[in-house]
Simulated assay, not measured.
Amino acid sequence: MPFVNIKTPEGALTKAQKEEIVHRTTDMLADYFTEAARPHTMVLIEEVKDGGYGRADEVFVVPDAYRAEETA
């Protein structure tokens, strides 16, 4: 069973963007492993809270300008 775990800053993606990532990732894996893998493919998108990760000794907080805006 192919398994993909994507970690992203909380609020950085809309629901529609996350759905698109799931579909496109599943399509990509089905291309590699054949269509037989599609029903067994798991794509997990985990949102990490601000301050819950960092790089080069700097704790990361997503600026408001980079947060996704949900559309109704």
Rank of each mutant, 00 (worst) to 15 (best):
Q17A: 14
Y32K: 12
A36D: 08
A36N: 04
D64N: 07
V62L: 14
T25K: 12
G11F: 08
L13F: 11
A36V: 07
T14K: 06
T14W: 02
N5S: 12
F33R: 03
Q17D: 09
N5I: 10
D50W: 07
V22G: 07
N5V: 13
E46W: 08
A30P: 02
D50V: 01
V22T: 14
V48A: 06
R55A: 10
A56Y: 02
D31C: 14
K7L: 11
D50T: 01
T34P: 00
A68S: 02
P63L: 01
T8I: 15
N5F: 15
A16G: 07
T14R: 05
V43F: 13
K7T: 11
D57H: 04
R67C: 01
E35N: 05
E10D: 09
A68N: 00
G54L: 05
G52E: 08
T34E: 06
R67H: 00
T8Y: 08
A68Q: 00
V61S: 03
D64C: 01
G54K: 03
K15T: 14
D31A: 15
P39M: 09
T34N: 07
K7P: 12
K15H: 06
T71R: 10
Q17I: 11
E10H: 09
P2Y: 15
E69S: 04
A37F: 08
T25L: 13
M1Y: 13
R38T: 03
P2K: 09
E47C: 09
G54E: 02
K7V: 09
V48N: 01
V43N: 08
A36G: 09
A37E: 10
E19W: 03
V43W: 14
R55D: 07
M42S: 11
K15R: 09
D27V: 11
V43K: 10
E70Q: 05
V43Y: 12
I45P: 12
G51H: 05
M42C: 10
V43C: 11
K7Q: 14
T41F: 13
T14S: 13
D31R: 15
D27S: 14
A68D: 01
V61Q: 03
T41H: 09
G54F: 05
V4S: 13
F3R: 07
G11N: 04
V62P: 00
G51S: 03
H23P: 00
M1T: 08
